[in-house]
């Protein structure tokens, strides 16, 4: 069972795309891969005011991920706490996972030729910190939520 999820409070989100850049700079990614995404529905008038809802998407960290079994080198792994991550040391850049994921989550890093994806900044989580997108969210709209079984 996954231990974490990222929750976006759409009321506070201002669609500034900060999270996308916070993620990239923390992982030192070049132009190319963007590991999370802020999007919104087309505007619709609600009591005279054109409104929309924002959505945040990164990796779903599937319970039964497609990307892990297709990885020929075992670089793509799922941790006990549910986080799906790529071991950069082991990845050979075959891009099998890129084809396997229905949502296009794993992406090639043109600088290294290997795959990168959202891993909830597990190095930060392990150090007792929050993911980059959450820590630096412009409006504190993004939260790291610990899931509980009920």
């Amino acid at each position: 069972m996954n231990k974490y999820t990222l929750y976006l409070n759409s009321r506070r989100c201002i669609g500034c795309h900060g999270c996308e850049v916070h993620c990239k700079t923390n992982k030192r990614l070049p132009v190319g891969p963007i590991l999370c995404e802020i999007s919104h529905e087309p505007l619709k008038a609600v009591r005279g005011v054109p409104k929309t809802e924002f959505r945040f998407r990164s990796c779903y960290h599937c319970e039964d991920p497609y990307c892990v079994p297709v990885c020929p080198t075992g670089a793509m792994q799922k941790r006990a706490d549910g986080i799906v991550f790529v071991d950069q040391e082991v990845c050979v850049g075959c891009m099998a996972c890129v084809g396997a994921c229905p949502w296009g989550v794993p992406q090639p890093n043109p600088e290294t030729g290997k795959v990168v994806k959202c891993d909830y900044c597990m190095d930060r989580i392990d150090a007792g910190l929050k993911p980059a997108c959450v820590t630096r969210c412009t409006t504190h709209a993004l939260k790291l939520v610990a899931l509980q079984e009920i």
Binding site: G18, E20, T25, T138, H140
Partner: peptide, 23 residues
């Protein structure tokens, strides 16, 4: 390696432009 809003005043918050300072 890391830029964040001053925790005493902004609790870490920073916008996309602020993060892109590294670029």
């Amino acid at each position: 390696t890391w830029i964040e809003g001053n925790p005493h005043l902004l609790d870490g918050a920073l916008c996309a432009k602020g993060s892109a300072g590294i670029a």
